[in-house]
Design a protein around this nucleic acid. Structure first.
Lengths: 219, 219
DNA sequence: ATTTAATAAAGAATAATATCTTTAATAAAA
DNA sequence: TTTTATTAAAGATATTATTCTTTATTAAAT
């Protein structure tokens, strides 16, 4: 079959989120190995790049539908294809971004998203000073134009990089305007109806982990 | 005692990472509630903001050393203090950043880090065009100056926002120069000796989760 | 051919985390 | 007072994720 393992003859088994989160890291490395002309890679070796258990890697790759051969490993090129397909990184994902401040500008300019098929095609703001400008070729429109443009361009992903005070309100608008998935960078949790996907990316969470480890380092 | 629960009379129990990662979100909301003048908050109510199980919140807060009162909840102001102290967000954390590109510039300009006591005090690059400039008041130095400045300013946190091809090399240098914790934004996993803390922040991981949910939405 | 070493795959065991249940505390209502 | 409702806290259970173990496969060496 395709994109997920089958459990007996019941519904497809959901892929664990930790697995999904590890996959892009595999893909990044595998693309590099491919560029270097490496043909095969074994799970133990792949695991050593990430300090993971080899069986973990095998299982993760199996979720994507990849199979390896004993004594040989996986075909790098095939694996790249499988992961790109599984993750959807080989398809085009156009997104609208609301909040053209520092963070928003950085995300727009961030070349790396291309590797994942993601493209921010327009930004929106309510600040008159920002409207009409463009950021590395991406136009900044008045938020009032979001609905019309999103409908016409069939945009399903919305990115929120506003201050946290505005985030929930923007999310509500996005939901009303037909956005299917919201990627929120404001440091609050936003609420959406169950049919809408929301992913909060809280940069503080990572910082908290670092500081905690730093504090505990002397034990 | 202080910052972690005691297990019998043995060593302090490590605080689960998921707990650490949730705490900044609690703190952000609690600061907001405090600003709004709210005096008390119950765990069930706090949990509702994040769609979490109330007992989860109670346990998380207990790890930080917070106690609530039945029928009343927690004192918001006290809770803010406890979490800030536990997370170290009320202390100053000075960091050096290497890689003054779009992402690096965005992190430097990102006001939000202040809320966590984090300050990027200098940036470094090897690109002559960038050296000597400043980004919102933060100077960009030649990478060659990192070691001397880090030693004199007692910097223990290094942030990597270089292209992935350079990241491991920069990490090695940082380790040699006495950096204790590395926050890596390049989309690869970097390797460091066991005494050095490393936190990889892979933005693709979040994107992968979103795309996966979007793909599975029609089931 | 036969053996050996490396490996993927499947399954079992373990560990970590989240959820559910019960108990105890306490403020407000009766 | 006494009762009731709400809640934190502690403990038990369930779930999830990771790691360990075993088996089967296969390429290379003998």
């Amino acid at each position: 079959m395709e994109k997920s393992l089958m459990h007996k003859d019941k519904k497809p088994v959901a892929v664990p989120e930790p697995t999904i989160r590890r996959m892009p890291a595999y893909l990044t490395l595998l693309r590099q190995l491919k560029d270097e002309g490496q043909e095969f890679i074994s799970a133990p070796r792949l695991a050593s790049f990430f300090n993971l258990d080899p069986t973990q890697v095998v299982k993760d790759l199996a979720y994507a539908g990849a199979a390896g051969r004993p004594k040989v490993g996986y075909v790098v090129e095939k694996l790249v294809e499988i992961l790109e397909e599984f993750l959807g990184f080989n398809r085009k994902h156009e997104a609208f971004l609301v909040g053209a401040g520092f963070l928003g500008s950085a995300l727009i300019q961030y070349q790396g998203f291309r590797e994942a098929g993601m493209k921010i095609v327009a930004a929106f703001d309510t600040d008159k000073k920002k409207i009409g400008k463009d950021i590395s070729g991406v136009p900044v429109f008045d938020l009032a134009k979001f609905r019309d443009l999103a409908g016409r361009l069939h945009i399903s992903i919305g990115i929120i990089t506003t201050p946290s005070s505005a985030a929930q309100q923007i999310a509500d608008l996005m939901v009303g305007w037909g956005i299917k998935a919201i990627w929120n960078f404001a440091p609050i949790s936003i609420k959406v109806p169950p049919h809408v996907i929301v992913q909060d990316t809280h940069i503080y969470a990572n910082l908290a982990v670092i500081l905690n480890k730093l504090n505990n380092a002397g034990r």
